[in-house]
Design a protein around this nucleic acid. Sequence first.
DNA 1: TTGCTAAGCGGAGGTTTCCTCCGTATGTTA
DNA 2: TAACATACGGAGGAAACCTCCGCTTAGCAA
Lengths: 224, 224
Amino acid sequence: MSGKVRRPAPRPPGEPKGAAEQARTLRADGRRNRERLIEAAKAAFGEVGADVSLEEIARRAGVGIGTLYRHFPTRDAIVEAVYRREVVHLAGAAARLIGSMPAGEALHQWMRLFVDYIATKKLIAAALGAIAGRGSDLYSFSAGLIADALALLLDRARAAGEIRPDVDPGDLLRALAGLTYGNADPGWQASALRLIDILMDGLRTPSARAALTPPGRDAPRSRA
Amino acid sequence: MSGKVRRPAPRPPGEPKGAAEQARTLRADGRRNRERLIEAAKAAFGEVGADVSLEEIARRAGVGIGTLYRHFPTRDAIVEAVYRREVVHLAGAAARLIGSMPAGEALHQWMRLFVDYIATKKLIAAALGAIAGRGSDLYSFSAGLIADALALLLDRARAAGEIRPDVDPGDLLRALAGLTYGNADPGWQASALRLIDILMDGLRTPSARAALTPPGRDAPRSRA
DNA sequence: TTGCTAAGCGGAGGTTTCCTCCGTATGTTA
DNA sequence: TAACATACGGAGGAAACCTCCGCTTAGCAA
């Protein structure tokens, strides 16, 4: 019958403590375990659900529960870490994709990745909602990174003459968000991917569209 | 170290079981306690946070923990009950307001209530997110009720000649959602209320606007 | 009003999860 | 290689979850 419940003060006055900043001073094994924990947490959220026990996550990562708590003092902390990691990965993928394929194709693949990202976001949305509500810096952090990545992709594709010149990054982001908004049923992801293919066709310039069929590469959706 | 965690199957095959339907066959004390529990839960969510312990809620309601679990077998169930109750209350308020004041004023007051509703919704959004994701019937239930209420209010106000004739219910709902979207800081609610006052002014016909100042009732924001 | 009965109540207690604490192990630096 | 700081692991206490069952009481019939 104590007065308070669980953690009434989830926001200590200490600074937000960016992931990179604390990785800088972490010992090698510490960094490795931290990585493993995030990986395990992501898998566990996906397979078990947003309310996996933290001990299950530690077990999957092959570390002790104490290690988990040292790296992530609260459940929110680990959820946020998984989310941040997804965002960074998605943003970083833009540059990677640009480097390894034609700009238009890169844009297309990235939009498909975006759907995966939203899926992750939804999965942990329950736990995340609370965080996002408290400190909005997480939200602006992710929104900024993603907007930048999309702008970069569009620039390159436009410069290469693969897409129409009048496409605005903001519009496209809104379109993507719209395609993925409010869907909860199992078929959602497949549907969103189909719509993205169609959208991508609409974005292409006539010449770029024509260039897709003649050679042999008429199936641009090979990558899982 | 068992395989599963907590409640891996939160969606039994039984039908949704509307609140009214099961209240019909409840004994008087049962109905009373159920009501008390929802009331206590709403207060507790507001004062303590979305992760109040269920035992705290039972204590506040003045009932045993067993009673709580009989009425609400899972945490989701009680969260959903609070939410549903808010929605029903908000929708029902439309008819009440229409009956007790001029139609334009009723529309205005109802929009202010809408802000309270969003506040509640946000508060329990963390817990709710999971539910809404699983079964979307809750979402459509609330969206439908609220859209109907708003349409009713608009109809009356339009018929009374208090607002411009070209206002679409969907547009106004979108506007309301927009006013309240994405705000998490403390000042949000006050800001939204101010914006609603402005919006309402814009909706009024010139004659209705003129009719507000001459008499003595020039402070239409009396109601808390 | 009285008595009967099923519906409902309450909370003890087993189970699970959370989280801290501290002795042990290991990476890092000199 | 030695010494030191950093990180690891898991035992264990506190708290929350949830079930189960004996007791109470509302509702009804006579």
